[in-house]
Nucleic acid binder design. Structure first.
Length: 436
RNA sequence: GACCCGUUCGUCUAGUGGUUAGGACUCCAGAUUUUCAUUCUGGCAACAGGGGUUCGACUCCCCUACGGGUUGCCA
């Protein structure tokens, strides 16, 4: 069997992380089985559809790296892939229902007559679930065609899945109770239904239902906030699915290799940005220095910092210090700026050390005398200067760091010295010593 | 209200009758790095509650509580 999955969002807002995860699981399952991943846009709600929302779907999917095989921009043999263009298909299948006397008119709309019997589905994640359709309380005959002639979600969704030959429907658990309705439709059409897998929903950090406006709800926010798509994909995959090993850091390709619906759990997961940030850092560390510098550049520019020729080295020096790209500007600003600000706390610490002023002044002269400037020769000078003044090298490291960066933490001191160069280092040392 | 699904450290999770209940994030402490970060080691921290079944339940059954979902001429 050739596996065909689909992601079928409606363009009524931005791309939601819950939707993105649904898309991811469909993508992983299709790729895992060398199948086809279809992107279908369910734009039947004319009143709420917007072009921005359409674009957000494609942009979000592309950013995450979830490339689809059929749909927008790709074509395919089962189009059109926008429901708004498929009316003729729906009319055709609606006639089938009519001919079989499975629909009846009600106030101008058409309702589908459910068979009144228990419907059991075998869900790939939830197992067997039975809904009793003899209980009319929860299962009134559903409208499939509105009085204005348009068709409702349940109907078009089933017709599309059937015509597009979808074999596996992986969707959010909010659709679990819809599935018997869809099964009844398939049965009425005389068509074998696809297999279903309902994945648990994503909740807010406090356990409440995640909806629009909630932190982290929009996929587009992640790129703006400096997350890597690999980090977000990795995080989303681990929400409700697990590889049954202690490994956690995976690329998209590795996820494809390990993915299985059997390892999807059934309980909803909360959204913990802390772990997402950590995963992001793990993926940041996998980047080459050049790729890292390129990825961080927009954030450095946005912070108003000049991209000088020191930038590539500066970016490389802070690569291991950040979890998120927006942290980069503050981490390397002193390497790009001519005038640096000395932070209060480290300054106070240095002032506590009575010998600091003399030590730093002596170090400046020692630096000035170095012929072949490098991280090693500079660090050697620190050691010698400290010793000559009866201090330990470690005692001089911190004041030097503060003099050069204005901060208590940051890149390796050797890196800082090498990037700044001899003249700039001497200059900063002298000017700082004078302030003490 | 009715119906459906769920409930293991704060969070993500492993665990399918007998385990010192494991890992990861966060936090804390040590080590290493002559500095910072990384890294390493260690620590804190969980089976929602009550009944059964069983020699023995986190694991099976029932009830309760809590959470989520569905119950639209939204998708």
């Amino acid at each position: 069997m050739h596996v065909r999955t689909r992601f079928a969002p409606s363009p009524t807002g931005y791309l939601h992380v819950g939707g993105a995860r649904t898309a991811l699981f469909n993508y992983l399952f299709a790729r895992k089985h060398d199948g086809t991943f279809v992107l279908r846009v369910e734009d039947t709600d004319q009143a709420r559809n917007t072009d921005e929302a359409r674009a957000a779907i494609f942009d979000g999917m592309s950013w995450l790296g979830l490339d689809w095989d059929e749909g927008e921009g790709k074509g395919g043999d089962f189009g059109p892939y926008n429901q708004s263009q498929r009316t003729a298909h729906y009319d055709k299948w609606f006639d089938v229902l009519k001919q079989k006397d499975r629909v009846y008119e009600d106030d101008g709309a058409w309702r589908f007559r459910f068979e009144r019997k228990p419907i059991t589905m075998t869900d790939l994640v939830c197992g067997e679930v039975t809904i009793d359709y003899t209980n009319l309380d929860n299962t009134p005959d559903m409208v499939v065609r509105r009085s204005d002639g348009s068709y409702v979600f349940h109907f078009v969704n089933v017709v599309d899945d059937l015509e597009m030959q979808i074999t596996h429907v992986i969707r959010g658990e909010d659709h679990l109770m819809n599935t018997p309705k869809h099964l009844q439709l398939f049965e009425a059409f005389g068509v074998e239904p696809p297999q279903y897998a309902h994945i648990p929903l994503i909740l807010n950090a406090d356990g409440s239902k995640m909806s629009k406006r909630d932190t982290g709800a929009a996929v587009g926010d992640y790129s703006r906030q400096g997350y890597l798509p690999e980090g977000v994909v990795n995080f989303l995959a681990l929400l409700g699915w697990n590889p049954k090993t202690d490994e956690e850091v995976f690329t998209l390709a590795e996820l494809v290799d390990r993915f299985s619906l059997e390892n999807v759990n059934r309980s909803p997961a909360r959204f913990d940005l802390e772990k997402c940030a950590w995963l992001n850092q793990q993926h940041l560390l996998k980047l080459s220095p050049d790729d890292f510098a390129a990825a961080a550049k927009p954030f450095v520019e946005a912070a108003g910092l000049p991209i000088t020729d020191r930038y590539p080295a500066a970016a490389a020096a802070v690569r291991e210090k950040v979890r998120l790209l927006p942290e980069v500007p503050a981490a390397l600003d002193f390497l790009l700026l001519d005038e640096i600000a000395i932070e209060d706390e480290p300054l106070a610490k240095v002032k506590n050390n009575a010998a600091a002023k003399e030590l730093l002044a002596a170090l400046a002269e020692s630096f000035a005398g170095i012929q072949n400037w490098s991280a090693d020769t500079a660090k050697q000078a620190i050691g010698e200067t400290a010793q000559a003044n009866g201090a330990k090298p470690g005692q001089l490291m911190f004041p030097t760091r503060v003099a050069l960066s204005g901060k208590a933490g940051g890149p390796d001191l050797g890196d800082i010295l090498a990037i700044l160069g001899k003249d700039e280092s001497v200059k900063r040392l002298r000017s700082f010593a004078e302030k003490l």
